Simulated assay, not measured.
Amino acid sequence: MKFLKPALFFLFLFLSNCLLAQNDIVLKTNGDEMRGHVTKINDKDIQFIYENETLEYNIPISEIIKITFSSGRIEYFDNHEKVSFQNLEDHHNKVAILPFGYIKDQETSNATMTKKIQLETYTIFKNKAVNLQFQDPNTTNSLLIKAGLTNNNIEGYTMGEICNILGVEYVVQGLVSIERSSVTGFSNTQTTKKDNRNNAYVDGKGHIVGDISNKSKTNSSSFNTTTQNYSTNITMNIYNDKGDNVFSKEHSSFWQTEDAYKITLDFLARKTPFFKK
């Protein structure tokens, strides 16, 4: 027992140090992250001490997007519109493509595909744009990150607010859903027949030389293949910087291949007012 109390003391000290090592993270409207400890939140500013420092700073709330506390709690501040550094009149005729939602066989965790479809949609529109400037997806994603928008909290923002964050007049948002459907089987049998032709002849003495019989040989081979079919459904929406939905359409692909979404994306893009006929 005499060793138990010192052990508990050092365990408590270790856990305390671990907790103290965790930082609050303040995300500013210019994209900077401040790591340290928020000591107080006032009406117009917060009091903040940087990690491994003792000097206390006052940071205006107008410069803060959110605070992620060491406990995991997140507090948002209504300053996200300042991230774009643009006025509404500068948004005119500018379009951003958001990362598409992607569901395959009810799984939604494929971040690579959401960006891939975003880029493919951008390419389709950019090649057929009508007096519109399409924002590069890398710029779009960077601005979203700087504003603190993630898949977990983006539903807390209106599409009008997202337009203002990205500095565009319109955003294109969509969902691609792919599900396994039927399996198609195919079998084929090939038969090869080889004939031994009559190669007999009569020599000068009237004797028959060679084989006068007709023989044939038949070989057969068969193979089976199966193809997995998919059903593809895509929803595409366009919103303006006022939050209005100016286009909405859903379409199921006729094709049953896994990459049929590409054809369907092109089909839906042609239906939008952005596409040059």
Results as ranks from 00 to 15, higher is better:
250 E>Q: 09
162 I>G: 00
17 N>M: 13
173 Q>R: 11
46 I>L: 14
227 T>H: 09
11 L>W: 13
3 F>S: 07
152 N>H: 02
31 G>C: 04
110 N>D: 14
248 S>V: 03
124 I>V: 08
9 F>I: 15
230 Y>R: 06
217 K>A: 10
135 Q>K: 15
120 E>W: 03
46 I>S: 10
189 T>G: 02
179 E>G: 02
51 E>Y: 09
96 A>I: 10
135 Q>D: 13
61 I>N: 02
246 V>A: 05
271 K>P: 06
59 I>V: 05
256 Q>S: 00
261 Y>I: 00
129 A>M: 07
125 F>N: 08
17 N>S: 15
192 T>F: 14
15 L>W: 15
11 L>E: 15
195 D>S: 12
173 Q>I: 11
106 Q>E: 14
269 A>H: 09
41 I>Q: 08
224 N>R: 09
163 C>A: 03
1 M>C: 03
214 N>T: 13
142 S>K: 15
8 L>Q: 09
228 Q>S: 04
168 V>P: 02
1 M>G: 06
142 S>G: 15
78 D>Y: 11
67 I>S: 04
219 N>L: 12
5 K>A: 06
1 M>H: 06
62 S>R: 11
231 S>G: 00
158 T>S: 12
69 F>H: 07
5 K>N: 08
70 S>G: 05
123 T>C: 01
15 L>G: 15
120 E>A: 13
118 Q>F: 01
274 F>W: 15
108 T>V: 08
24 D>H: 01
26 V>L: 04
8 L>S: 09
128 K>L: 04
89 E>Q: 08
102 Y>E: 00
104 K>W: 05
26 V>S: 03
180 R>M: 02
49 I>N: 03
65 I>C: 00
251 H>L: 11
264 T>D: 04
241 D>V: 09
189 T>A: 01
22 Q>K: 11
93 N>R: 12
199 N>Y: 03
252 S>R: 04
208 I>M: 10
88 L>C: 01
104 K>N: 05
72 G>M: 01
82 K>N: 13
117 I>R: 00
20 L>N: 12
236 M>G: 01
63 E>S: 07
162 I>N: 00
197 R>P: 04
184 T>G: 06
49 I>F: 04
10 F>I: 14
263 I>P: 00
267 F>Q: 11
161 E>N: 13
135 Q>C: 10
65 I>K: 02
234 I>N: 02
141 N>G: 08
243 G>A: 10
109 S>L: 11
149 L>A: 10
65 I>A: 01
214 N>S: 06
61 I>P: 01
60 P>T: 06
79 N>E: 01
196 N>Q: 12
117 I>W: 02
275 F>N: 09
268 L>C: 06
259 D>L: 07
198 N>H: 05
145 I>T: 15
89 E>D: 10
29 T>P: 02
169 E>H: 14
216 S>Q: 09
21 A>V: 08
243 G>Y: 12
58 N>C: 01
75 E>N: 02
